[in-house]
Amino acid sequence: MHEPLFDYIERYARASITDDEKDIIRSSFEPKRLRKKQYFVEEGKICQYTGFIVKGAFRQYSVDDTGMEHILQLAIENWWVVDRQSYINQTPSSYFIEAWEDATLLILPRAKLDVILEIPVIQSMFWQMSENNHIAFQKRVDDTISLNAVKRYENFERLYPEIVQRFPQHQIASYLGIARETLSRIRRPSSR
């Protein structure tokens, strides 16, 4: 069950994991199954785990005072789910992280983070992930303030075709910061 995680670590760290390191990883990351619509974390609760998605899909969102959902992240296999601020600082989460499909994860309890970070290949992987996340965040902000809705959707569809297939239009629209009706108009010509 841990093989996808080992592959991910080696790909991001650009280094091999020793058998001893694999044993530490196996004992640190616990398997967890969630059913569709089950929460990984809920707003107001402390995020106790970071989760590597082996199978399934998740959405991370907040709900404003009017009850409207705002999607922060859509995630599928070989992605991570976590409210980083809540997990690291052990403070209440501002987000819901919900399984959009039946899912299997490998979860790392906060208490085991320091142990796992002693492994050089894990340090390298987390560093690379942090860099990639920062770059993706900057790109998303830049796209939001500088591109029209059509270009934002085209970029997203090109980069994440599987996510476009697995999540409903209204969630993709929320993630992109565009109205559902606008996304429907954008997608209509390409569906002919």
Rank of each mutant, 00 (worst) to 15 (best):
Q60T: 14
P168F: 00
N89E: 13
Y175N: 01
F167E: 00
T91M: 13
E3L: 00
V41C: 14
L106G: 08
A179C: 04
W100S: 11
W127H: 08
N148K: 08
D65L: 10
V141A: 06
I186M: 12
A179Y: 10
S174T: 05
F58S: 02
L159D: 15
Y49L: 03
R11T: 03
P92L: 03
N148L: 04
T50F: 01
P109W: 00
N133V: 06
K151V: 13
V164K: 09
L176P: 14
S130F: 13
D7G: 01
P109L: 01
G44I: 04
E131A: 13
F167T: 00
E98R: 13
R26D: 07
N78S: 10
A136C: 02
N148R: 10
G56M: 04
A57P: 10
R187Q: 14
S174N: 04
I97C: 07
A173N: 11
N132G: 09
D83L: 04
D7C: 05
V81T: 07
R187F: 12
Q165F: 08
I88Q: 07
G51I: 05
E3I: 04
V150Q: 13
Q171T: 06
S190N: 12
Y95R: 04
M125Y: 01
T182S: 15
Y153G: 06
L159V: 00
L106D: 06
H2S: 00
M129D: 10
W79A: 02
S94V: 08
F137L: 05
S190D: 11
E162F: 03
G44V: 11
R35Q: 15
L5I: 03
F6H: 01
S130G: 13
N78I: 01
L105C: 07
T18M: 07
V164I: 10
W79H: 14
P4G: 00
S124D: 02
T144C: 01
S174I: 04
L105H: 09
A173H: 10
P168C: 00
W100C: 09
M129G: 05
Q90G: 03
L176Y: 15
V54E: 06
R35L: 11
S28C: 04
I24V: 15
S146N: 11
E77I: 11
K32F: 12
I71Q: 12
G56I: 06
L105F: 15
I163T: 10
L108C: 05
E10F: 00
A57H: 09
I145Q: 05
K32T: 06
E21M: 03
T66L: 12
T66S: 14
D142I: 03
L106M: 12
S27T: 11
Y95F: 12
L108G: 05
S94H: 09
I186L: 09
